[in-house]
Amino acid sequence: MIRYVFRRLALMIPIIIGVTVLVFTIIWFTPGDAAEVLAGNAPREQVEELRRLMGLDRPYIVQLGDYLYNVFIRHDFGKALVNKTSISADIVMRFPKSLIFAVFGILISVFAGIPLGVYAALHQNKTGDSLATAFSLLFVSTPGFWLALMLVLLFAYRLGWLPPYGMGGVEYWIMPVLANCFHGVAIITRQTRSSMLEVIRSDFVVMARSKGLSEGEVIVRHALPNALIPIIAVAGMNFGGMLGGGLIIEKVFSIPGIGNYLVTAVGQRDFTAVMGGVIITSLFFSLVMLAADLGMAFVDPRVKEQYSTARRRK
């Protein structure tokens, strides 16, 4: 198992490099660059001069190599092209906010979604189930930014209970976290319901009942652990999504997180800033996926065994 973890960690190196090359290439082929943004309406020669100073006129392969060398060998993200700030410092300042944001989002999603899904499965086709299903269908298909705007309209402008945007105490976090997690709650509710429905029909659940366990014990000890595997997979994906995908919501609420940073950087064609944000996000995304896989191995001995046999085969 430990070996498996190390293998997965090692595997992350090529993945991150791959992501870096891919994103770099996409930015390189996007029209416009940081020099144009910086120069504003300056004449053409001035823009060219700036481009040369920033090294943006060099061939694609040289720039890419240079960037990879700086990041992976010298461990230096460099300076932002437009704002001239240190990207490492920017990330250290902003990433924790996004992380907290995503952690709260996933915690709420899991702790609300699983009970809701279990409830719906146990009351299949009754009113409670219909409500829960309708709720999750609604929020699975509602875009987060629209929900965010509606929340702002209601709680900030109409009712005046919460500040519309910005950073500060708890009251500033409520709406963004809500807007960010509704989708997660809905997805986890759906997944929990369907995998619970499958599991509670199994023979071993009936057998658990035949042992005289109470319904609660049957659900918590036998049904839920078996339903958990797909739920963990979905929760992992969702957490990853919240890490990077909170960007529009961060924009709506002016949260200075990594998402907001990325949106601004893309607007300025500031490739070093974009790259820094993307690399750190994909790094955490990979870590979350690894954690989800380990979580699955933890609940299911059959998955765990796969990992150990995979190791033995080598």
Binding site: D203, F204, P225, N226, V299
Partner: peptide, 9 residues
């Protein structure tokens, strides 16, 4: 084959 819980020893 199906009467035992696969994730409990």
């Amino acid at each position: 084959m199906t009467a035992l819980n696969p994730v409990m020893c």
